[in-house]
Design a binder for these strands. Structure first.
Lengths: 203, 203, 203, 203
DNA sequence: AATGAATGAGCATTCATTCAT
DNA sequence: TATGAATGAATGCTCATTCAT
């Protein structure tokens, strides 16, 4: 067995990557010091050394996984262009993401949802919501952005949890509704007149 | 010693209840034949006899848990009354639910989200979505109902996952947007709720 | 569940058949009242009722399984014809048998070999050896017949236990040697010492 | 209690020995991590640590058990001496082996035959056949050696499976036949392979 | 600083058997 | 007579953790 590297500065990194692969394949429940060590091809002791607890490893993994959809968003030219149909662009992005490898989507969501029971993960989950919000900030107000995130989460979950299929047209329509303030005037006027949404909606 | 109950016709039921208590206290990860048997005060073999696998038990538990929010919805007089503000009623219900015992909410969501990794649970998760949809059917079209469910799910998750607090006003505003079809006329149309959704646009 | 037949005279028979299918699929170790009951589609209690112990069921199954190669032998026209090359005919039969479904061969051998640890099966195993001996009786003497059975068993085992392949030419050659008494002189004379091999039949 | 042995370099070895004792006493079916741990007087975890699966333990045990008859063969002066009657020497060895403790013989055969259903054991079973073949290589050709092994296996099985008794004279006679090539002419002419088998013993 | 060995608790599941009907 | 319900023992296996290097 050729595994003599003692000083391996990237070992930590490699362990996180291995954890993501394991979680993608067998779910968070399949994560253990052992499975990760085997996947990363490092000694068992190495995983406990670099990550004293599984939660610690999970936080690192979640942070890394979060980059998936976030990158998709950030790198989308349609999203950046203020003249595009934002709802349509978002609906298309969701379609792309959900249409890709199911394991990737499931992995990100599973890690994200794990925060429900693991307070340690909540800050990271919050970071993600904020990041997506930041991307949308240029195109809408914060309160709307928050609702957009919620709606997209809910739609994705419906697809993932019920074995349903994604309906891009439906998603676009509903995103459009969310993006248009209730009191938006007849002329579709610039923006969001409603106090509620204009100045970040209170609340 | 003192457990000579051979004929116990409600044994199955009691095991499910015990499973819910265990899941509420320690999460799904804490569910095991052993923990449930101990909680229900039945022999270990009894749990495996009534539920050949943990998934089977989980399905029964999820089905039972689903009744929580569903009942809240079904029994709400505001929801049934076609003249009430639907968005407001829903926002208030969410507030009530989220304001209650956190463990109950977490439990229901954890069981619901478990479907992500356990295909066996997906049909039950789908049932729930459909049930809520059915409750809303009287007040809006199916496509909108589906989006309402998605938005509510997303909002609840944001609260639960990020340690944030629930903002009823914000929720009401966004639900209102979802409930108002895009095609609704320029003037913000004739109001709301029931009529507003009568000719749905849907998608 | 349509399973209302209370008086089912062939139930015993069906249970044995189910046991054979289970043993073929999962090995003797996979036999249990439960697996057999499931395979036979009879209530669990029915298997314990008809066969008080697993050994009893095993005896019945072994007796039934034994018919496989035995029938092949008995029905072979080449074997019955005193003018054929006995060694060649036997080698060909082995080839046919080993070339068929591996599970059938494995099953018969596994049941046969189980007698090693289960004295209850030994009489049945002995029956089989005797039956094959009887088929060969017309073509050779009892002692030689016994050795032929031994050699064939040994050859089959080598194939089955070592993942090797069957070499019919080799088998025929060796069977030929066994069938030809040592003392058979240049003149084919009887010459033999041992009673057992006195009427050698050559090959 | 009194079992503070942390550093025990021969632990692995002792576990294998314990496994052989358990298998001898209760058969392979009686092997379990627990029974072996108890027999070896080591913690349960120790058996799973050293042998990740029962198959692994079985392989080690079979390899060790194989040494029994193999050693008998290798250490036999009669076998090594090219002038002895090979068939007679083998027949006598079988007699010695079968006449010894029945448990030892049964154990070796049970482990050997287990390869039928456990592919993991097949390479080890093959090793054994090869080893015996190697011992015989000096006295006969490979094809004959293979048949000798087969015949001996078959004879031993008949004894073990049918509660019969071992007939050394019969065994010797049949081994003699196998050792004498068919092509050997009526005059016992030279013909085959190694000198050793050329003039096969008569009998 | 890093790691192989070791261990006891716990897991899901299968099982032969018992018992009341 | 036949059988569903019930149960406690046992199984293979995984694991976080500890410990001695």
């Amino acid at each position: 067995m050729a595994r003599p590297r003692r000083h391996d500065p990237e070992r930590r990194e490699r362990i996180v990557d291995a954890a993501l692969r394991v979680a993608a394949r067998r779910g968070i429940a399949g994560l253990s010091h052992r499975t990760v060590a085997a996947e990363a091809d490092v000694p068992l002791g190495s995983t406990t050394y670099h990550f004293a607890s599984l939660d610690e490893l999970l936080v690192a993994a979640l942070r890394k996984a979060n980059e998936g959809f976030g990158r998709l968003l950030r790198e989308s030219p349609a999203l950046a262009d203020p003249d595009t149909d934002l709802a349509g662009a978002l609906a298309r992005l969701m379609g792309e993401w959900l249409g890709g490898e199911r394991t990737g989507v499931e992995l990100e969501y599973e890690l994200y949802l794990a925060a429900l029971r693991r307070p340690a993960l909540r800050p990271v989950a919050a970071e993600w919501a904020e990041e997506v919000g930041a991307v949308l900030a240029a195109r809408t107000d914060p309160a709307t952005a928050r609702a957009v995130v919620a709606l997209m989460d809910g739609i994705c979950l419906q697809v993932l949890l019920t074995d349903g299929s994604y309906d891009e047209t439906h998603a676009r329509e509903m995103l459009t509704r969310i993006l248009r303030p209730v009191s938006e005037g007849p002329n579709g006027g610039p923006a969001r007149s409603s106090k509620a949404t204009e100045r970040p909606t209170d609340t």
